[in-house]
């Protein structure tokens, strides 16, 4: 992410210190993660100490300080999904992508995350990829779905 783009985002929020979280969210959603250079620029423009930005960026799970894959896989590990075989789905995804929850693969294709409940227990086991929900998953279907992502 180049400096001009970060500046544009900051300008969109009038460089207000109170818009810090919004600025960070915009950078996060555009870039998938928060590079240090971007945070330093935000710190400079918004006049917020880097230590405080770091505190906020590590506090919320929505932010990532390490590069994330193009597609975010969220596997529900809630009670309903669990009894319906979420662990099998998880191990299938781990096998297919070669990464563990919290990790990103080397070509930045997928990031894997487990979540505690996506709120649609009747669809369990649920997998969410880039905000799209896949319900009643089987290991075979998981493989199909993952293949459809580039």
């Amino acid at each position: 992410m180049d400096k001009e783009r970060v500046d544009q985002i900051i300008d969109r929020h009038q460089a207000e210190a109170s818009s810090l979280i919004q600025v960070l969210l915009d950078i996060q959603s555009e870039n998938n993660w928060l590079p240090k250079e971007a945070l330093e620029r935000v710190s400079q423009r918004l006049d917020v100490p880097l230590a405080r930005i770091q505190h906020i960026a590590t506090f919320y799970k929505a932010f990532s300080l390490v590069p994330k894959g193009r597609h975010g896989i969220h596997i529900c590990m809630g009670t309903a999904c669990h009894v319906r075989g979420a662990t099998r789905i998880l191990s299938k995804v781990r096998e297919l992508t070669g990464i563990n929850p919290g990790e990103t693969d080397l070509d930045l294709k997928f990031s894997l995350e487990t979540v505690n409940c996506l709120g649609c227990c009747a669809l369990g086991p649920v997998v969410e990829i880039d905000g799209k929900t896949y319900g009643k998953m089987t290991t075979a279907e998981t493989e199909e779905v993952l293949k459809s992502y580039e």
Binding site: P49, L50, A51, R52, Q54, H55, T58, F59
Partner: peptide, 26 residues
């Protein structure tokens, strides 16, 4: 932060993982 206004050290993370962390450059 309050007395020196240098912000060289801050908290990171939250809950049981919360810890202090220096900003190396500062």
């Amino acid at each position: 932060a309050e007395v020196k206004q240098k912000y060289a050290v801050g908290f990171i993370d939250r809950g049981i993982r919360k810890e202090i962390s220096f900003i190396p450059e500062i």
